[in-house]
Amino acid sequence: MNENTVFDVKDLNLYYGEKQALKNIEIPIYKNQITALIGPSGCGKSTFLRTLNRMNDLIDECHLDGQINYYDQNIYHQNMDVISLRTHVGMVFQKPNPFPMSIFDNIAYGPRCQGIKDKQVLKEIVEESLKQAALYEEVKDRLKESALSLSGGQQQRLCIARTIAMKPDVILMDEPTSALDPVATLKIEDLVVELKKNYTIIIVTHNMQQAARIADKTAFFLMGELIEYGDNSTLFSTPQFKKTEDYITGRFG
């Protein structure tokens, strides 16, 4: 494992109660790349994504075995501070979910929870995050207005800014554009490509063209198994496995 490997997943098996949702997943995720996770509904890609920041802990019947290493630390080790993990590995959700607070407070929420109170520092963090999320120009005059007054696409960019405010290492995105219109979707795609310069991004998408457009590497999941994982240039042109080929060419959903 070199220093370019952000996550190294080894032999991951995940269960919801008796039902096995992920089987023998082994996959490395590389720094400053966009890794796309594709596959039909229910194949486990979102479940897998959630293991990376331990959001699966919130689901009672969920348990797993195997190892997920974030750099050289097993994140499922007893002593792992989950809250600290989540400040390094942020998440953006499918449906934009800004808090019913002002735009400023939304972005300042994370830092405030970590104890940052200085008004000047918070102001800078908010400004910086909004700029990185390509939202600053649109909202700079109304930071005190409610976040719910923004459009869907803007709200999602706000959520991205909110995550960035924590200065994470990795950003997990769970179908971030599936609730948005095509123009908003493209704006976010451009943003994600920009962001990979500073962050490592893992994005779950059910839109194959999106994965083809923006990702460096893509992983294809099917029924809880990782079927194929490779560079976009080969996976979308000459996939190794027939199942991958069939999914990509849409021969089955």
Binding site: R86, T87, G90, F93, K95, Y109, C113, Q114, T163
Partner: peptide
């Protein structure tokens, strides 16, 4: 209160 808010907050590293 929608679970969305809880998830968002926890994902940001709040306790």
């Amino acid at each position: 209160v929608p679970d969305d808010y809880r998830f968002a907050s926890l994902a940001l590293g709040a306790s």
